[in-house]
Design a protein around this nucleic acid. Structure first.
Lengths: 223, 223
DNA sequence: ACCTGAACACCGTTCAAGT
DNA sequence: ACCTGAACACCGTTCAAGT
């Protein structure tokens, strides 16, 4: 009886890749990229740091698995009854929202473009580019253009999150950057100075969608 | 006499931010991102690791300065006698070539989009977007779309370089990835499987330029 | 003012030893 | 088979002490 309880308890608390990834996501969401260490993870899972290596090869696999789990959530539930253009927009916004909610994913996606999470996005976008009627030879180029754009923004978002972690909030940060931009040399940086005023008030999500629409418009010209 | 020689020698070997950045670039180019440590840098400069902190705030400032030096080389020499569209293409290709020659810059640019090097690119692209006749309200969106695309590719390139550093060359790496892609589930990954064959033989530079052209085509539709 | 280099507070990863 | 936790080989950064 005692052994049985012990055994089921042990099984309930047993380490597994799923439990490790789950705990990693909790740490990343709560305290950001910098907080995920094998020691912190082991403490949260009440185990030794070496135990994690029985289930996970190394830190990069762990991060890839964490990112994949969250990205999988939005690529598997894709609706196909909308026009391809709208599916691409929805998918892109889905990625944006996941990065917005979990900024560490931004860093992870842009750091390793060959991880599975990125493959999911590539497939999701590519299938719709195909459905859009884009000629075969340029389907790959059109798809990777959208993907690169998404990954570029992912990196930017992650960088923003690293700043927020160090205290200040979004508005303060953008205000400070806009200030710096306005003080740049007018001869060398006319455009940046002109655009500085838009920086603090601009909507990231809207700007992101505008970029996607621009690329889609470009794709339509070659269709 | 002896003191004079000593003093001039000391001055010639004196540490400065320029010499530190120069040495950092040499290390990064020769052995990649992972090789740049303050200890390696100090050894190369024949000084103590703490001495570097007198001239440079921390590692991120050092990397930003290194990236900025190489990016400055191509934004300052821009020709303005070409049509805006061609200047954008040339600038984008310039960034591509710098990243191709120094892959660590890719990681650095995508990691911190508010560093000066990125600002230079933003200005270079933005000024031409303006010259292109794009309406004011969407100049910012159009410019950041191109910038995000460039930074997305920068991250991908840096990731590739990290692989090459671990032994295998470009062709082997892409071949291995294409192999993995072809073995994916046909139901879940039809597009990726179809596109796998193009992966090992495709030209990065060409694909990059195709992406830029796609965005430019999109921008022209709203002009 | 500028430099030295030991010391501090961390990392990811390994591995003999346990169960 | 799975887990423990000390140990290894690193990091970036600091700082008392030198010149």
């Amino acid at each position: 009886m005692a052994t049985l309880t012990q055994r089921t308890e042990r099984r309930a608390n047993a380490l597994s890749k799923e439990r490790i990834v789950e705990a990693a996501i909790e740490i990343l969401d709560a305290d950001g990229e910098g907080a995920l260490t094998f020691r912190a993870l082991a403490a949260r899972l009440k185990t030794g740091s070496g135990a994690i290596y029985w289930h996970v090869a190394d830190k990069s696999e762990l991060l890839a698995a964490a990112a994949d789990q969250l990205v999988a959530g939005l690529t598997t539930g894709a609706k196909t009854d909308l026009p391809p253009r709208e599916v691409i927009r929805a998918l892109a916004l889905g990625v944006f929202d996941v990065i917005d909610a979990h900024p560490w994913i931004g860093g992870q996606l842009s750091r390793d473009p060959w991880q599975h999470a990125v493959l999911r996005i590539l497939e999701g976008v590519g299938a719709q580019v195909q459905a859009l009627g884009v000629p075969r030879p340029i389907q790959f180029n059109a798809t990777t253009a959208i993907l690169s754009f998404i990954l570029g923004l992912a990196g930017q978002y992650a960088a923003g999150a690293r700043f927020f972690a160090s205290g200040s909030d979004r508005a303060t940060l953008l205000g400070a950057i806009a200030d710096k931009w306005e003080r740049l040399d007018p001869v060398a940086y006319p455009f940046v100075r002109q655009v500085a005023a838009q920086l603090p008030e601009h909507d990231d999500r809207e700007q992101f969608l505008a970029g996607v629409d621009l690329i889609l418009a470009g794709i339509e010209t070659v269709r």
